[in-house]
Computed example of a mutant assay.
Amino acid sequence: MVTGGKCLQKFMEMASTNCTQLKQSYWILIFGGIHFLLPQLPNFNSVAGVSLAAAAVMSLSYSTIAWVGCVARGQIDNVSYAYKKTSSADYMFYVFNALGQISFAFAGHAVPMWKGALGAYFINAICYFLVALIGYWAFGQDVDGNVLMNLKKPVYAIPVFDLLETMMVKKMNFPPGIALYSLLDLLIITLFIGVTFPFFGDLLGFFGGFGFAPTSYFLPSIMWLVIKKPKRFSASQMDHQLVVYVLQSCIFVGVFIMLASTIGGFRNIIADASTYSFYT
């Protein structure tokens, strides 16, 4: 919601300089309003074409435009790669927030399509690393969380919505229909959060830790250990024991990422909100 609204705003500011400029909140509302059309599709399979266009084609195009634009723009004058002058506490929370952003970017591998997940992550890594490295080369410490904003002014939620819809229809006896689709998509809540806290990097860090780290980094490991109930193994079963150690390490690292990134993102949202005029 936030990214789409900001990009719409930037596009219109560049394409139509003589028109009255709308504030960012309105652009987020306009972008969010488009999403109300998607829940009216009859079923989850009918969203496949939208998902392909949005998640695959648009994501690749977006990242390619970002790094190619940075190369074409070149380095800004007096580019600096030094750390921004701030307190040690700020450094720590920035690192925590960055962990959440990484979790957000590479979440979702609990989906049971191993080869597809590997292929997706390979492409994902190329896109992200090119944007990150070239964007930092061009703008240094002044790079924006959304690098396209420096050039002169992901649909992942759809499976979650489908899961909620299935649960409410089968277990809570909700009749399927337009009202249910609109309710399940939680568009109003998502849109409200986007308009209220349009802090791109902070939101990625917070939701990456709070929402994606558990389901991607340690809950699957806990589930495996609970289901298999592994005991101590003999020397001939050392490979199995190694798997247990790896899963235990994943749990430890995953819990740390969840706590650190959630705290870091939440703290940065509060810090940015202290200098932000809401609903302007």
Rank of each mutant, 00 (worst) to 15 (best):
L41T: 09
S80Y: 01
I65R: 05
I34Q: 02
M58I: 13
K85L: 05
I65H: 05
I76C: 08
A72P: 00
A72F: 06
N45F: 14
S63A: 15
S51R: 11
Y83V: 07
V68A: 03
V68C: 01
G49T: 10
C70K: 05
K84H: 07
S46C: 10
S80G: 00
A82D: 14
M58W: 11
M58A: 12
M92V: 13
Q40S: 14
S88D: 08
L41R: 05
S88C: 08
S61L: 15
S46N: 11
Y91D: 13
V47F: 15
V71Y: 10
M92Q: 04
A53I: 07
A82S: 14
V47K: 14
S59W: 06
A82P: 00
S61Y: 13
Y62D: 03
L38M: 12
Y91R: 12
S46P: 07
R73L: 06
A66V: 05
S63I: 05
S51I: 08
Q75D: 00
T86A: 08
L60S: 10
A89S: 13
G69F: 10
C70Y: 07
M92T: 13
Y83F: 13
V57Y: 09
Y91A: 05
S88N: 12
D77Y: 06
Y81P: 04
Y91I: 09
A82G: 14
L41K: 04
G49V: 11
I76F: 01
K85C: 02
F36D: 01
A56D: 11
G69L: 10
M58H: 09
L37M: 14
N43T: 03
S88F: 10
D90L: 05
V50I: 15
Q40Y: 14
W67M: 10
N45L: 09
L38G: 04
C70N: 14
G32C: 04
H35W: 09
G32Y: 03
M58T: 15
S87N: 14
V79K: 04
R73H: 15
P39C: 01
F36C: 02
I65L: 15
F44L: 09
V71W: 10
V50K: 08
A72W: 02
N45Q: 15
M58V: 11
P39W: 01
A55Y: 09
Q40P: 01
K85D: 13
S63Y: 10
Y81V: 03
H35R: 00
P39A: 03
G32P: 03
D90T: 07
C70Q: 07
L38I: 15
S59I: 04
V71T: 07
V50T: 15
A66F: 03
